[in-house]
Write a protein that binds this DNA or RNA. Sequence first.
DNA 1: CGGTTTTGACCCGCGC
DNA 2: GCGCGGGTCAAAACCG
Length: 297
Amino acid sequence: MSNETKDLFNYQYPSSFLLYEMMNLPSSTPSSDGNNCLDPSSYSYDSLLQKTFGLSPSSSEVFHSSIDQESKRYASSDVTCETPARVSASSSSSEAGRPGEDSGKSQKKRELSEDASEENQSSKKVGKAKKKEEKKQREPRVSFMTKSEVDHLEDGYRWRKYGQKAVKNSQYPRSYYRCTTQRCNVKKRVERSFQDPTVVITTYEGKHNHPIPTNLRGSSAAAAMYSANFINPRSLTHEMFPTAAYTSGGSAASTYGYGPSGYGNANPNSYQEYRHQGGEYELLKEIVPSIFFKQEP
DNA sequence: CGGTTTTGACCCGCGC
DNA sequence: GCGCGGGTCAAAACCG
């Protein structure tokens, strides 16, 4: 981590560390072996970090937990990708659902309201079936756990909040964000761990089809990314995510950072910009390099 | 004034 | 079939 980064990091997130997890979602993902674990062979997190973040594995530990569907997220993972010594991230590639996801739901309502109109009658049914398929093939998701006081991590992209829901068994709500770039269907969810309020879980879904907005608040954005630091998440992870596999010696990468603002946005300029970590390694590559590599001494 | 956040309503899938 | 929880919509409020 560069000095600059560090400074920034310390400045903004003195004690934040990042936990991360990448998951493949639906079973439909071509992930290697069928289980929902990430395929270690595909992407070693360490290497990922080193390549994209320029971080060395020794810098921190990474946790990886395989998660199935978010709904079962922290509960299902007995499957676990007992991660060996290294964490691996996998990418699922089902981009199939592409056009959908978003459209799926948005269509929903539109259909409902427009259905009233004649022609939509048929599209309604078709649409539903279609939606179903689309739904099954959700986009790859990547989720990160970051110890931070702020909920909103800045990752360089611009997001618009479109919903918030109370999370069961948690006193903290989950916020839903969508990339504001036109035709970009990337979404992300942000919530706090109910077991450790200091940990923010951010889940990205989809892949950005556009470059990162350049009007970031300078290094702060990058810093932010770094900020989501990683520090020995071990204890945390174990307690919080029983199923999460944890690796020692791995490194963690931070993906985004926050602006000083949190929920509401204390920082006028940074309020809704983050760096997004797409759903997969590729995404990481797309995004990270520009920011992280630069800072590498 | 345009873009974002808030928030209640709605839809859907799933388990019982 | 029903209830529950998750995810999204969209109108209104808010803000720079």
